[in-house]
């Protein structure tokens, strides 16, 4: 691996995003996982996972609690590094073709490319503006005009601009749950990642707010590759192009969402999606 992560990360997604003019190139896998084994201390949390996540599509991870889907998601931006005793035992995760557990990979550069939206909407107790500008500010951007631009662009991208443009400088905690979650999405896209990971983004939202977030996910896939962990079968069905079903740390089945939902190959998948599990 001669090219450093920084340089390749900076050039590649730009090229990928250039495809906005043409049809998005979906054949190119954005994230590739090869025989991944992952441990929480002695607990073998992920077993021999191999899959490929296509670019500019929504890939849903489903499975019962504790099946490892969130763990896998958090491998993609190395958020698991924050948890003591976690380690990759075997295998590789490649994003844009680069092994992200390579010591040459800086987690900070990685996380700028691989954004994340969490289960519980976690806007900082700052103004809406500061929330969105945060990612750029920690990169040292001070230019007010640039920040203004990015804040507007990101909020528009998150379909939130019209709702909040008159109160950008009020606390983000004053927003409704759904709006807060969309602030978090706007915050993530403000740093221009190429991949957005979503860990049960709608689990705390009511159906109307959920619908809006799903709508947004559908819009965002034009420009970003999205991986979403969800417990909501309908959500996986509605918004995803690909679905992967996990059980007990193993990938049971992955395929096009229509296929998984109408005629899965594995019995376990069928039982799970039809609610007959266990």
């Amino acid at each position: 691996m001669n090219a450093t992560f920084e340089t390749r990360m900076d050039t590649l997604p730009q090229a990928a995003r250039g495809s906005q003019q043409g049809a998005p190139d979906t054949s190119d896998p954005m994230i590739e996982i090869d025989h991944l084994d992952f441990y929480y201390g002695a607990n073998h949390a992920l077993r021999d996972i191999s899959l490929q996540i296509p670019g500019h599509q929504v890939t849903a991870f489903i499975g019962p609690s504790g099946c490892g889907k969130s763990t896998l998601l958090r491998c993609f931006n190395r958020m698991n590094d924050l948890i003591e005793g976690t380690r990759i035992g075997n295998g590789q995760i490649r994003i844009h073709g680069i092994d992200i557990s390579d010591p040459a990979v800086d987690t900070i550069a990685l996380r700028r490319q691989v954004g994340m939206v969490f289960q519980k909407s976690n806007p900082f107790p700052k103004s809406i503006y500061e929330n969105i500008a945060y990612g750029l500010q920690i990169q040292g951007v001070r230019d007010r005009r640039r920040l203004d631009e990015v804040v507007e662009k990101s909020l528009r991208g998150a379909a939130l601009w019209d709702e909040v443009k008159d109160r950008l400088h009020t606390s983000a905690l004053g927003l409704s749950g759904g709006q807060q979650q969309r602030v978090c999405i706007a915050r993530a896209i403000a740093v221009e990642p190429s991949i957005i990971l979503m860990d049960e983004p709608c689990s705390a939202l009511d159906p109307i707010a959920t619908a809006k977030v799903e709508e947004l996910i559908h819009e965002l896939k034009k420009n970003y590759t999205i991986v979403i962990v969800t417990h909501n079968m309908q959500q996986a069905g509605r918004c995803s192009d690909m679905t992967a079903f996990f059980y007990l740390g193993q990938l049971i089945e992955m395929g096009k969402t229509e296929k998984i939902f109408t005629n899965p190959v594995q019995k376990q998948t069928e039982d799970y999606i039809s609610g007959r599990f266990g």
Partner: peptide, 22 residues
């Protein structure tokens, strides 16, 4: 809340930036 730390780390903040600002 842990979310504040994770939120800023996920945006590419260093640990100290996350602690200092959030």
């Amino acid at each position: 809340p842990r979310g504040f730390r994770e939120g800023s780390l996920a945006l590419g903040a260093t640990k100290w930036q996350a602690i200092r600002t959030n």
